[in-house]
Nucleic acid binder design. Structure first.
Lengths: 337, 337
DNA sequence: ATGAAAGCGCTAACAT
DNA sequence: ATGTTAGCGCTTTCAT
């Protein structure tokens, strides 16, 4: 491993100058900078992150904490964040809490404290007060994506508006008999999200004076099988809704499959609308409201990096509400009359 | 941030002893060790990873390099690896190559060289010779999961056997008219896997003298839509196979959906078998061959950690072939006669 | 603009 | 079993 001293010798300068030339911090004449860079490249010199971190206090590393990885939304957020971080020369340390309480405690009590990260990004996480406190104790920038975490600044779409838009789409097609398949309360996931999406559904109905039937508001688990089961329940009887608003595309896809199994035509017999714009939504012809988790991950990173080091490229303004768009496909139409 | 010196003072010992007591390296009387640990906990002391790494050369961090995150297999491998790493007090740095050539180059040319990781785990990656060389230049343990990488030791199931088992299951039910929906060549993915799975299919047919019809060997892309398209093509005519072996559960699910859309009953009109035991396999009643990517991730980590530090708990023997099991559900039956 | 020198906070020889 | 000492490889004042 070539050291900074080796580069310095070959370039005929001091290690300090090499450091300045390579990091861009501090004044260096452009001639020496170029020379040093060329030589460093030739030698294949790369700074030792631990030495650099110890001396400077900067790790060039961001931690991402999330409840699990195997849902589309999480993977997308991480992908976006990852790509933004790599571009800026940052590493990404992943803390997947999926492994149980023991691991979860370990992450907050030990891992995050090791001075390994310059900032923390949490994804759709329901944090305890103690966990939030520990995060703040780090005195590092923290930001959440997906679902407001009390005490942590978050980047999130207007979940109520998202859901209202989906519902309003069905209403505008003439539906008044609408059901909602939402999320329940899960210990690890943010619990505001399910209720916000449910509220959006209800608001859209109230707006036009359509009835909200409690027995048509089901709680499920954001999965295809969960959506399937809920939709079967809704669609089995004769007195069934003409449209289903699901709080996620996975559940909406489950609903489409349930309708098919019951011999119902989508959208003729029942319209289905989802939320997210999952990668499978197009395949199933699912009308949905797209949000852009990869962009959310990227944006969160940009905000964080700017706080770590103001010299970073300016991100899009963050007080702007995150965008979401209705994507109409073939799973929705006017109700049969 | 409390330093090691503070702990040492309070415990009435030298920093060196604190280091030994906390890391378990070097002799310490159990009395002092306990005392030091208690005090460290009280003070909320956590070692500075950069200082420790600089002094010891150990980062307590493993890098995982993968082509993308949004496929079930990758998420599962990472989850398993993550959990195994957290248990052992290791961090996990994720290098997601999904972002394009620029990022990919950066990872191999800069990121991995920063002495950030003690070991590298690659997941189903097709590496160039140059990339392999760079990995070895690190002089760190490297292991691959999923698909043999030439020049890198890999942990992988017997893909041919996996596919042969799936095919043999259909054969044993009496099928002789079998089609294969496999993978094509993708630049970032390991390309041995698709051909190995195809070979397993062919071998199983050859064994019983059943015909392998080239026009029934389709190449797709491991996704549900891809499997759907391929299966439609296979099932549309009158001269169609009685069974489909798909090289992934996603494609198998696509095939089931295609059959349904064509008015065919699964398994009466056509049997479908997949490979993987995807989380959705059960929902679709898909017969498949389970492999256990989470365990593979965990196992890879255990092998790596043992190489980094022989004191680590002994992992399962690695020369043992990785396990896979036929899981029979409702998508397969004897062909209609 | 550059160099000299002092650490960053820990670990590992080496002594005792 | 414990303490002393010398770095690990950088970055950053502070001079010049």
């Amino acid at each position: 491993m070539t050291s900074i001293e080796e580069v310095a010798r070959r370039a005929g300068v001091s290690p300090a100058t090499v450091s300045r030339a390579l990091s861009g911090r501090g004044p260096v004449s452009s001639a020496t900078r170029d020379r040093v860079r060329v030589i460093a490249r030739e030698l294949g010199y790369v700074v030792s992150s631990s030495a650099s971190a110890l001396a400077s206090g900067r790790m060039r590393n961001v931690g991402i904490v999330l409840p699990f990885l195997n849902r589309w939304f999480y993977g997308a957020v991480v992908s976006g964040a990852s790509s933004a971080l790599l571009e800026q020369g940052y590493d990404l340390t992943l803390y997947n809490l999926g492994g149980g309480d023991e691991e979860r405690r370990g992450v907050f009590e030990h891992f995050l404290l090791r001075k390994r990260v310059d900032a923390v990004l949490t994804v759709s996480l329901e944090l305890t007060a103690d966990e939030v406190r520990r995060l703040h104790d780090l005195r590092k920038p923290v930001i959440g994506v997906g679902g407001p975490v009390p005490g942590v600044r978050t980047l999130s779409v207007d979940e109520v508006g998202l859901s209202r838009l989906a519902t309003a789409h069905l209403v505008s097609l003439g539906h008044t008999r609408l059901a909602h398949v939402g999320g329940g309360h899960s210990p690890e996931l943010d619990f505001h999200l399910p209720s916000a999406r449910r509220r959006g559904f209800e608001e859209a109905l109230h707006e036009v004076g359509a009835p909200v039937r409690p027995e048509w508001e089901l709680k499920s688990d954001f999965t295809i099988p969960g959506g399937y089961a809920a939709a079967r329940q809704l669609l089995e009887g004769a007195d069934r809704p003409t449209g289903i608003v699901a709080a996620s595309d996975e559940m909406a896809i489950g609903a489409i499959l349930a309708a098919r199994d019951l011999g119902l035509d989508v959208p003729r017999d029942v319209s289905v609308v989802g939320l997210d714009d999952h990668s499978l939504a197009d395949f199933f012809g699912l009308t949905t409201v797209a949000q852009y988790p990869d962009r959310q991950g990227r944006m969160a990173v940009e905000v964080l990096l700017r706080e770590i080091d103001p010299r970073h490229p300016v991100p899009a303004p963050i007080d702007t509400a995150l965008p979401f768009d209705l994507v109409v496909r073939s799973s929705t139409s006017a109700p049969r009359r």
